[in-house]
Amino acid sequence: MESSLVLRVVAKLLIPFILLFALYVQFHGDFGPGGGFQAGTIFAAGIVFYALVFGLDNARRIVPDRLVEAMLALGVLIYAGVGVAGLLLGGNYLDYFVLAADPVHGQHRGIFWVEAGVAVTVSGVMLKIFYMFAGRGRHDGDAA
């Protein structure tokens, strides 16, 4: 895909900050606005931006399909795993109080992992849908 020089340079400048902002939203979600869902979409939007400017193939090389599909399931598994961890440590399902010696610290730990699971699944799904649509259009165009 041919893109103008300005677009490429601006994208190269912006994308690291978009991804960094996604991480900030993820890990600062306890203290300010944000959380797993927002961070996941911003992260996916950053990758989509990259794919738009530098082409789908380059994006697929950086974030391969296999990884995206794994992220899809991994996020839900992390979330459900936090619940199971609570069970194993003697609490109820999704009971965070037992995750650490100090109940409040346990809550923080539980929320951290749960948000991580949400972010992983959401960004995986967003990217997968984008890959599916974009890839489909191009291959059909070639065939026609």
Partner: peptide, 20 residues
């Protein structure tokens, strides 16, 4: 749960099942 952002606390902790 001592999380300053109440939205996150509600989503991830109090309403953990919903978010799952």
């Amino acid at each position: 749960v001592d999380v300053p952002n109440v939205v996150t606390a509600v989503l991830a902790s109090f309403r953990g099942y919903d978010t799952l």
